Amino acid sequence: MHIDIISVVPGLLEGPFSHSILKRAEEKGIATVRVHNLRDYATGKQKQVDDYAFGGGAGMVLMAAPIAACIEALKQERDYDEILYMTPDGAPFSQPMANALSLKKNIMILCGHYKGVDERIRTQYITREISIGDYVLSGGELAAAVVADALIRLLPGVLNDETSALTDSFQDGLLAPPVYTRPAVWNGEAVPEVLLSGHTEHIANWRFEASVRRTQERRPDLYRKFEEGDENSTR
């Protein structure tokens, strides 16, 4: 997978891709992430990338011309399966969306900033708009890092145990069950006996039931969706 990220403050993305799983993915040649400074595509002495909004109001808007110049330059290098725009009014990012996007080969991500980007960029270039939550960040850089991380960790060969991603929260519509490690008793609290039994089927049943309980308690909204899906599958 190749991911290009367009940002007006690329320094915000220096850290996330230089460590841990994302770094190993690049070292293995499984995924490549490149961050592009939008100002490199601006014209004029000041390298201006933002301007006031027509109609007035507070805040600046990223201009269409430098963004289009950057996108067009990148499109000369490869064909993109998706051009994403990180924005609070996009579709909520989810595990199923991450699963689908992880099957793509080339992805471009545009990071919004200030009051966003000129709407004509959205209508003419963007294929999918994504939000990571109902709140506003200073820009789309951190959101872009979240999306890139969620996709790359799903690629075959990135995780040491490829089944790990399949047992994450949300993969089956439920939260993950509690997990324990040594010692078996810590601070007076013991690990559930079934997890020490070595009985694969009993352990799987316990984990599923624990996932259901945890989802019901902590995310009743998810639990309702899980119940509805379970009912539909048995009809």
Score class of each variant (00 low, 15 high):
I152S: 06
Y80A: 02
P156R: 00
H36R: 08
N106R: 02
F93K: 00
L38P: 08
H36Q: 05
E14N: 15
M63S: 06
D161V: 11
A150Q: 12
M86W: 10
V185Y: 00
S138W: 12
F54R: 10
Y85M: 07
L13M: 13
V194D: 06
L110R: 01
L74G: 04
Q76W: 01
G157N: 02
R219F: 02
I30E: 11
L101M: 10
L151I: 14
L155M: 13
D168K: 01
G90N: 05
S18E: 12
A145M: 08
P88W: 06
Q124L: 13
C111W: 00
Q171A: 03
P220K: 02
G188R: 01
I21V: 15
G198H: 10
P192L: 02
L159M: 14
R182F: 07
Q216K: 15
M60W: 13
I109L: 07
I126A: 13
V136K: 09
E27P: 09
S131T: 14
A184L: 00
I6K: 11
I132W: 06
S94I: 05
P16E: 09
L62P: 07
H113N: 08
T234W: 09
T43G: 12
R214S: 06
L137K: 08
V35W: 08
Q48F: 00
V146I: 15
Y41M: 05
K28D: 11
L12N: 07
C70H: 08
S20G: 13
I30C: 01
N205R: 15
I126Y: 14
T43K: 14
E209P: 05
L74Q: 11
W206K: 11
A53G: 09
I71V: 14
E189Y: 04
V136L: 06
K23R: 15
G11W: 04
F208R: 15
E217I: 11
H202A: 15
E27H: 10
E231S: 12
E209L: 10
S18V: 04
E26S: 13
D40A: 03
L38T: 05
F93C: 06
Y85L: 13
K225P: 02
G112C: 04
H19R: 13
V179H: 04
R24W: 13
A73V: 05
E72R: 12
M1W: 08
V191N: 07
V117C: 06
N99G: 02
L166F: 00
I132H: 07
L137D: 13
E193A: 15
H2R: 14
G116W: 01
M60C: 10
A98Q: 01
T181K: 00
I83D: 03
E228N: 12
R34S: 14
